[in-house]
Design a protein around this nucleic acid. Structure first.
Length: 890
RNA sequence: GAUCUCAUAGCUCAGUUGGGAGAGCACCAUCUUGACAGGGUGGGGGUCGCAGGUUCGAACCCUGCUGAGAUCACCA
């Protein structure tokens, strides 16, 4: 072993150790400032803003998928010469983070009310700092090429200013209003929620039939309800105006049991005559539909619960009870009074808070809303006129449109402490309300100083919706980043937040920047566990990306996630898949070790592709060239799965299994000129292949590239993306290689069949079909000798086949192995007959196809031509096999 | 109820404008050959969910059905 080889052994052990490369290179990349945008001021830009992860905790494997896809795109574009910006950041995630911090405090025996607003917020900021750091370190472990100099947080100063600006402008336009409405109330978190923060789950409940007596004592009316406790807030019973059963009762009064209040029977078309009894109790303060009915009929609104879901003073004897307890109690009481006449099982959908899990209460309260119609119309028009964003896969456009076409006003106020405080002030002196960009100290109307700012904060998604432009410096229209990098090129995210986030970014961007915020939206699926279940804390089936990285390496994880899925489709996390990716990394590592051992003393300047290249040399250059071309095309289409397959097949099959084996012949041979050619090709192809792979496996490729002779450049991160080069086209080398490969395979096959060990030399006779084939085989005779391990090789078009020999018919040649003592003529004949049957079937199939007039007339010419050529090939082979069988039979 | 996705080898999944069915793992045989046993070589295994239709030609397009899942909307 030479000294150089020894050094290689210590620097490059036989197994790739990801931890070494990962530690070495991420810091170096950051130090070098390679990820900073603006390095190529004159180049066209390519920009992505990261979907900001919540500062609620650590990143999970779903983040790893999302970020890997973006990193692949940004690295690809950076190598292509774009001025690439990938802007990082985090989201304050109002309700989610506040819940987490409150939970932590509760474990310490403290509530947020004990601390007070200011002290509580300090705790949240501490939490935020801690997790933002954790997230940053996780980004590093994943190898993400983020421009940290531009990192943003939804609650930092600039973004908060953007939030105020948007709020004030919408308010001034009349698109933000304050009003008393039925909203979704989370009694656990004690805050309002938007419609999409409510998850409907199927619940086995009951339908209670209650008999309300008429006030004049003339009878009863039966109503059906799933929520009997709300009867305390009933202010009417509604029937359908055309329902003959109840028509005479309309306008009469009922006496509400327990509370003994008189309520009217009203007529409203909202009532479905078929359902239940056809009469509906109306509780305007606790049901959105009833609220509407109440508005139409001018009914009183009686709220019978408080903010925590407990019954209030209007609930009489039930005051202080929790909703659920009250239901039990009231059912019992109604039963005793004979009012409850029937209980049916009833399956229905019940809304739960997406965050706290509590059953959401439709609740009447004063909140802030965004008037969605005008904003939605703009977005719909943009999309339908072709000026909208381009969804990948396309089907998500329909999902988006469906939502935005049916969207209702957006409740944006939250009764939380963590978030952007609503910029509205109330004057105690004159009673006026003022909405302002700046904090107000005195009332602009009366000059009074007793101003109170609205206690509520904004929905988290209000600020997230501005992310693509607020991070670039908006509302400062002169911001250099805004001018250069906005709008962004692509947004990469999961289908689960299309409504929450994607839609909101689109309509706010259109309203405030007059442009769509990104050209493409790449939608990916969720990462599920091995059984296909959603990962969740309660199941404990979550996968920590750091664990995966520690065990298999970041590159293996990245490769598995990015190439193991199709856009929009969920991925299952299975260890076998990561193992496969890890093995792939190791394969590349070892191929590189081989190359480096044979490139000792060979420098980048020595690479010379103009010499007498061998068939294999020209072939691998051709294969590399078309692989590079195909990959660039696939990457533009976000087809990472297919890209991965192409890379895998090219590297493993073509480069490692064939080219390197062929290369050994010249590398270990005596011909120095041929050796230099192979060294050049090996160095060149490996360098360029690493570049193709770099966006997927940044650490491994950098580590190897740094050892390899390559063009000047301090990092593969900034190396040029290999463009297709017509000078490498070598169709004839492809043909030659396929003849050689087919012949070599055939001989290996026969040897395996008769158990001749690969180490044992055999005699081989080759009869080429023509002069061209003969010339190819003669030129590459050394390959054939080596890979077929021949003791003697006869190559002659006029060859007379020996009687006792195994036969292989390939395209362009007949091969004979006279294996004395191993051949049973009968067996050989039946083997050939089997092959004959296969060939006959093929010939028949092709001929049948070609006999079809419609096919000849309508199929594309090149397809027909291909088929004809195949047919000819099969016939040739068949005839030769036939002839051989005849010979053997004598 | 509406919309959407999925159904392909034992398992997990690809299949790029319709042109003779693929990969990895698993399995079998074989090779301890000087980059790699996390390897090499070779092999077995699929009526592409079912039924129709369009087409010269369908895993792919259309219709219906079955099964699994998702999203949205709901009648109290």
């Amino acid at each position: 072993m030479s000294k150089a080889q020894e050094r290689l052994q210590t620097e490059m052990p036989t197994t790739y150790d990801p931890t070494v490369a990962e530690q070495r290179w991420y810091d170096a990349w950051i130090q070098g400032g390679y990820f900073r945008a603006g390095r190529r001021p004159d180049a066209p830009k390519y920009s992505i803003v990261i979907p900001p992860p919540n500062v609620t905790g650590m990143l999970h494997i779903g983040h790893a998928l999302d970020f890997t896809l973006q990193d692949i795109l940004i690295r690809f574009k950076r190598m292509q010469g774009f001025d690439a910006l990938w802007l990082p950041g985090t989201d304050h995630a109002g309700i989610a983070t506040q819940t987490k911090v409150e939970q932590k405090l509760r474990e310490e025996g403290v509530t947020r009310y004990d601390l007070g607003r200011e002290a509580f917020l300090e705790k949240v900021w501490e939490w935020k700092e801690h997790y933002a750091n954790t997230i940053r370190s996780q980004w590093g472990k994943m190898g993400l090429s983020l421009d940290y100099s531009r990192e943003r947080f939804t609650m930092d100063e600039g973004l908060s200013q953007a939030v105020r600006e948007v709020f004030v402008r919408l308010y001034e336009k009349g698109l933000i209003y304050r009003g008393k409405r039925i909203i979704n109330w989370d009694p656990a978190a004690r805050t309002a929620l938007s419609d999409i923060e409510v998850e409907y789950k199927e619940v086995n409940g009951h339908l209670y039939h209650l008999q309300y007596p008429l006030a004049d004592g003339s009878g009863h009316l039966t109503v059906a309800t799933t929520r009997p406790e709300t009867m305390l807030g009933d202010t009417a019973v509604a029937v359908h105006p055309e329902d003959p059963r109840y028509k005479p009762l309309i306008g009469k009064m009922l006496r509400l049991p327990i509370v003994n209040r008189e309520i009217p029977i009203i007529a409203d078309e909202y009532v479905d005559r078929e359902f239940g009894s056809g009469a509906v109790k109306i509780t305007p303060a606790h049901d959105p539909n009833d609220f509407e009915v109440g508005q139409r009929h001018d009914l009183p609104q009686i709220t019978v619960m408080d903010e925590s879901g407990k019954m209030n003073e209007l609930a009489g004897p039930y005051q202080g009870m929790d909703r659920a307890d009250c239901r039990k109690a009231i059912v019992k009481d109604l039963q005793e009074q004979g009012v409850l006449i029937k209980i049916e099982d009833h399956v229905h959908q019940v809304g739960h808070s997406e965050r706290s899990g509590a059953v959401v209460e439709p609740y009447l309260s004063t909140q802030w809303f965004v008037s969605m119609k005008p904003l939605a119309e703009k977005a719909i028009e943009a999309q339908k006129s072709g000026q909208g964003v381009n969804f990948v896969p396309e089907r998500f456009e329909k999902i988006y449109l469906h939502w935005i076409e049916n969207v209702r006003d957006w409740c944006i106020s939250r009764q939380l402490w963590w978030g952007h405080r609503i910029p509205a002030w109330y004057c105690d002196a004159c009673g006026e309300m003022h909405v302002s960009r700046e904090d107000l100290a005195a009332c602009p109307a009366c000059g009074g100083a007793s101003l109170r700012q609205d206690e509520d904060v904004l929905d988290t998604w209000f600020s997230s919706g501005l992310w693509p432009f607020s991070t670039m410096g908006w509302p400062d229209e002169d911001s250099a980043d805004l001018k250069k990098y906005y709008p962004t090129d692509v947004l990469v995210t999961g289908y689960d937040i299309i409504y929450f986030w994607v839609a909101r970014m689109i309509f706010t961007a259109l309203e405030f920047t007059g442009e769509i915020p990104f050209r493409d939206v790449l939608i990916h699926g969720l990462v599920r566990d091995a059984e296909g279940r959603k990962m969740s804390k309660s199941l404990g089936n979550g996968v920590d990306p750091l664990d995966v990285i520690a065990e298999y390496g970041a590159d293996a994880m990245r490769f598995m996630l990015s190439t193991g899925s199709t856009p929009g489709q969920d991925v299952r996390y299975r260890t076998e898949k990561v193992e496969q990716a890890r093995n792939f990394a190791n394969k590349i590592w070892n191929a590189s070790r081989f190359a480096l051992m044979n490139l000792q003393g060979f420098a980048a300047e020595d690479i010379d592709l103009s010499g007498p290249l061998s068939t294999a040399d020209r072939w691998i250059l051709h294969r590399f060239n078309e692989t590079a071309r195909d990959i660039a095309r696939l990457m533009e289409n976000y087809d990472f799965g297919e890209t991965g397959r192409l890379l895998y097949n090219f590297i493993w099959d073509d480069l490692c299994d064939w080219y390197i084996e062929f290369a050994k012949l010249t590398l270990y041979g005596e011909d120095d000129a041929a050796k230099r050619c192979t060294q050049s090709v090996l160095a060149y192809v490996l360098d360029r292949t690493l570049r193709l792979l770099h966006p997927f496996m940044p650490f491994l490729t950098e580590e190897i590239w740094q050892h390899l002779p390559h063009e000047a450049g301090e990092t593969i991160t900034l190396a040029a993306w290999p463009a297709y080069d017509p000078k490498f086209e070598a169709e004839e080398a492809v043909k030659e290689m396929s003849l050689l490969m087919e012949a070599i395979r055939a001989v290996r096959n026969i040897r395996a069949e008769v158990n001749v060990s690969p180490g044992k030399k055999v005699e081989l006779l080759i009869k080429p079909s023509g002069a061209a084939e003969e010339s190819i085989l003669r030129r590459n005779e050394t390959y054939v000798r080596r890979f077929c391990n021949t003791s003697s090789l006869a190559l002659d078009a006029g060859l007379a086949p020996p009687d006792k020999a195994m036969t292989a018919i390939v395209t362009g040649a007949e091969l004979y192995l006279p294996l004395a003592g191993l051949i049973d003529i009968g067996q050989e004949i039946s083997r050939l007959e089997k092959e004959l049957a296969n060939l006959n079937a093929e010939v028949e199939r092709v001929e049948k196809k070609l006999a079809n007039e419609g096919y000849i007339a309508k199929a594309p010419a090149h397809v027909v031509e291909q088929e004809r050529a195949k047919g000819q090939d099969y016939r040739d082979k068949r005839d030769k096999v036939l002839a051989r069988i005849a010979e053997l039979r004598g």
